[in-house]
Simulated scan of single mutants.
Amino acid sequence: MRKYSRSLYGFDRGAGPTWRLAACAALIATLLGACASAPSPVVSVTAAPSAATDSPSASDASAATAMVMPPPRAPGNAALLRPDAPLRYTVQRGDTLWSLANRFLLDPWQWPEIWIVNDQVRNPHLIYPGDVLSLIEVDGRPQLTLAGDLERLSPQIRELPLEAAIPTIPIDAIRDFLRGPRLVTADELKTAPYLLSFVDAHLIGGEGALIYVRRLPPVEPWTYAVVRSGQAYKDPDDGSILGYEALPIGEAVVREPGDPATALLSQTYREALVGDHLLPVEPDAFQADFYPHAPTQPVGGRIIAAFDGISQISQFQIVAINRGSQQGLEPGHVLQILQAGARVADPYGKTKVQLPDQPAGQLMVFKTTPRLSYALVMSVTRPAHLLDRVEAPRARLN
């Protein structure tokens, strides 16, 4: 009798026609199992191709890049992807963490929900121009990672300067503010050095003018910021003074210590006046090494001031809110702006009805003090104004 080798499913073909029925049953069961466990239309993590494997063609790579991932169906508070979120994206110069998050997510502040932390770098949120971001699926949830992380066989070190990384927010939008007003307390103003008089007989002074200064300490620093006391920041909730705006006037360099000391106005942005204060110069460097994320506790603050002094709030405008580090705020916190609801007359009653507040946009905190924070308005969907409320953002429902 002719002998046959054992088949794929382990049945001996030499046993007669019975093996055919058993093999067919096993094949049908396998196909049904494969259909039941078919993956959803989301890219999954796969092993990197080996050197012996043929690499995909350029047309295949282009087609993969053009594909989009549908919104996830994961229950709970899973981050919702944009319908047009790309599977791969190459980071460009001019991108920010916020713009990248907005490219993939309906709610950009949920960035930490999909970003895979790379433990090989000190700050896992640093992304550089030229990096390729890949959208994948891990345990049924969408995740975003650097494309190289999927193929790394050993730890690698990136030798790029920190300032080469993309910022979280557009630095150009806050550069003028960083040279602009600062928050000071009443005690700081009471003890700060001040402009006593001009060496020459002037009522006002500009760049190059010599001035006399009182209360100047006899030790460093030798360069001071010249400021003028501006508006008081008042908390609308309890009426307390959070601090005072210190308007920038210029800079002064100490020539001769003493009481009074002599200093030179090295640069000015507006005319210096007798009574202006001198404060230590704040560093120009601004490290936007934070990332967008939502507060983990209630905020319940209000917009109390706008950098350019207008009442209506627009995109990329800088605002001050009456909550700070004492209330748990930190750089990178994203807050939702709520437009105050109006009071309208009830056509079938004698009283007015308070309408609910409406979402008006989002802002991101970039600088905090104990009781006050500065934030950049990232988006506006309806008119927003001073005294509008801010709170932790709410996730969209699936």
Score class of each variant (00 low, 15 high):
E251I: 03
L278F: 05
T369R: 09
A147W: 05
A51M: 04
L387F: 15
L178G: 00
A342K: 09
H293K: 10
A288K: 01
A392L: 04
C24E: 13
T296S: 15
A345T: 12
A48E: 07
S197R: 09
A360H: 00
H277I: 06
E151S: 15
V281D: 05
L338C: 02
D95V: 10
A285Y: 06
S37I: 13
D289T: 11
L100I: 15
G180T: 04
P129M: 08
A384Y: 06
L27T: 11
S50K: 13
T18K: 12
I204Q: 13
T90G: 08
D346K: 05
H125C: 09
T368V: 15
Q231I: 06
V253E: 14
L355H: 03
I249K: 02
A209W: 02
V274L: 08
V281C: 06
S229M: 08
P75G: 12
Y4I: 03
V138G: 00
L264S: 07
V344T: 11
F366E: 04
A101F: 02
F286P: 00
A23G: 01
E163P: 01
Q267A: 06
P218R: 11
G148H: 11
T46W: 03
M1G: 12
D346V: 05
T65R: 15
G301Y: 00
E188Q: 15
L106Y: 00
D131S: 09
A164H: 05
P193T: 06
D289Q: 07
L247I: 13
P86V: 09
E282S: 14
V380P: 01
L397N: 07
S7G: 13
R343C: 00
I337E: 01
C24L: 15
G206D: 10
D259R: 07
K190W: 03
L196S: 12
Y212D: 09
G243K: 03
D84G: 11
L31W: 08
A61L: 15
I171P: 03
A246W: 05
V344S: 03
P257K: 07
Y233D: 01
H277Q: 09
L355C: 01
V365Y: 01
D276Y: 04
G230K: 03
W98H: 10
S44P: 00
P41I: 01
A165Y: 06
Q297E: 13
D172I: 08
I241Y: 09
V299M: 06
L210D: 14
V353K: 10
D235V: 08
A165S: 15
T65D: 14
R228Q: 14
